[in-house]
Amino acid sequence: MTDYQPINCSYYDELEAMATLKKVIPIVYRNDRGEEVLIATRITNLYTRNKEEFMVLENGLEFRLDRLVSADGKVVIEGNACRF
Rank of each mutant, 00 (worst) to 15 (best):
F84S: 10
V24D: 14
Q5R: 12
M55N: 02
D32L: 14
L61I: 15
V75H: 11
E78F: 05
F84W: 06
L38D: 12
Q5E: 12
N45E: 15
V37F: 05
T41Q: 11
E36P: 01
A19W: 02
D13G: 11
A17I: 08
A81K: 04
R42G: 12
Y4H: 04
E16F: 05
T41G: 07
R64I: 01
I27G: 10
A81Q: 05
D13N: 11
K23C: 08
F54Q: 01
Y4F: 15
R64E: 10
E35N: 15
V76R: 15
G73L: 07
E16D: 07
F63T: 03
I7W: 00
I7N: 00
G34D: 09
Y4P: 07
F54Y: 15
K51C: 06
N50H: 06
P26L: 05
M18F: 13
A40R: 13
R64D: 03
N8I: 04
F54L: 02
E58F: 14
V69P: 08
M1G: 14
D66L: 00
R67E: 02
K23S: 10
E36W: 03
Y12Q: 05
L65K: 02
A71Q: 09
G73C: 06
Y12A: 03
T20A: 13
Y4Q: 01
K74G: 00
V28I: 14
R42T: 13
N8T: 07
G34M: 08
R42N: 13
L21W: 06
E58C: 04
L46S: 07
G79I: 07
R30P: 06
E35P: 00
A81N: 05
E14A: 06
V76F: 04
R67T: 01
L61R: 15
R33D: 13
F63A: 04
K23W: 05
M18Y: 12
R64N: 08
N59R: 15
T20L: 14
Y29I: 01
L21E: 12
E14C: 02
L65Y: 00
I7Y: 00
V56G: 01
T41R: 11
N45L: 09
T48A: 07
P26C: 06
N50I: 00
K74V: 13
L15F: 03
A17L: 11
R64W: 02
R42Q: 15
R83M: 09
V28G: 03
F63R: 01
I25K: 02
Y29K: 00
L68Q: 06
E53R: 11
G79P: 03
V37H: 10
R42F: 07
G34Y: 08
K74T: 12
R83E: 08
E35S: 15
Y4T: 00
R33H: 12
G79Q: 11
D13L: 10
L15C: 08
V56P: 02
C82P: 05
V69R: 14
C82M: 07
A81T: 04
E78M: 08
E14L: 09
R30I: 01
R33K: 15
D72G: 10
I39D: 14
I77F: 12
F63P: 02
L57P: 04
V56M: 14
R42C: 13
R30K: 15
